[in-house]
């Protein structure tokens, strides 16, 4: 048991007061390690809340620079940051919120060749990416590496998120592979309400913190979907697919590959 300092007691007091978290839960959070992949609409609020919550180590991975069109939803980046590496911009804010947090930066795109080496050091991974190949890659790497992770996706006014724990329903149990290139519009074509990025990213952060403290019921074997236009939330039960190409009875996927077809291929100017 860590003996919390007076400053820590005060900083985290609203967590500690919670019956389900308490000193014990907060201590676990302080020792927890989360990796956020993608510092866009989802990664931005997740990074801010996890730093604020006192998560001990937060890895952030993104190979992009801040673009003016990002600022409508990626609230960790400010106007002055346009042109800056996203990981640097994000680290500065996280450190400013909570100097105790150890921020590890990966200023690169995570791909089949490097992802396994990065995730192995973390307790929980947050998928904040914006394209299907990356989402399937993260799913495959986490299932193979037996790492819990939070999947999240947003488009227009809608969002969806699932939490994976080893042994439970994975993303490929539900969606066996990326959709055909033309079937799904990209973010820049379809647009997205900035605020829903905040809604979904904070749900992912909450899942990570609950997992860290070992409390509550995670979004495991069920998917939360919401439509902000109607402001309608529901959870859809999921179950493991015996024919899942990744975690089913006869898996066909045995190694990590980079799918082609980035869904948001027009995003980079």
């Amino acid at each position: 048991m860590i003996d919390l300092t007076e400053d820590q007691l005060e900083r985290y007091s609203r967590h500690i007061i919670l019956k389900d978290i308490g000193v014990e839960g907060q201590s676990k959070i302080l020792e927890f390690k989360v990796l956020i992949i993608g510092l866009g609409g989802l990664g931005a609020p997740a990074a801010l809340y996890l730093a604020a919550a006192g998560v001990g180590t937060i890895g952030i991975a993104d190979g992009d620079t801040v673009d003016l069109s990002n600022l409508q939803r990626q609230v960790i980046h400010f106007t002055a940051d346009v042109g800056k590496r996203k990981v640097i911009s994000a680290m500065e804010k996280m450190k400013a919120i909570n100097p105790d947090t150890n921020v590890v930066v990966y200023d690169e795109k995570l791909v089949a060749a490097n992802i396994a080496g990065v995730i192995k050091d973390y307790d929980f991974i947050i998928d904040g990416t914006d394209n299907f190949p990356a989402k399937f890659l993260i799913n495959d790497a986490c299932v193979m590496g037996k790492k819990p992770f939070s999947h999240g996706g947003i488009l227009r006014f809608e969002g969806q998120t699932v939490t994976y724990l080893p042994g439970h329903t994975c993303y490929r149990c539900v969606f066996t592979g990326p959709p055909p290139k033309s079937s799904v519009p990209s973010c820049s074509e379809a647009g997205v309400l900035g605020a829903i990025a905040g809604m979904l990213g904070t749900i992912q952060a909450a899942e990570a913190i609950k997992y860290a403290a070992g409390v509550g019921r995670l979004l495991v074997d069920r998917m939360l979907v919401f439509d902000a236009l109607k402001m309608d939330f529901r959870t859809v039960p999921l179950s493991r697919n015996p024919r899942c190409p990744l975690c089913g009875e006869n898996p066909s996927i045995r190694e990590l590959v980079d799918h082609e077809q980035p869904a948001c291929d027009i995003r980079r100017k």
Partner: peptide, 14 residues
């Protein structure tokens, strides 16, 4: 309040 309660919980946790 509520720091007195937070500190109470800290002591109890030990």
């Amino acid at each position: 309040c509520p720091m007195n309660f937070v500190k109470t919980k800290m002591e109890l946790s030990k």
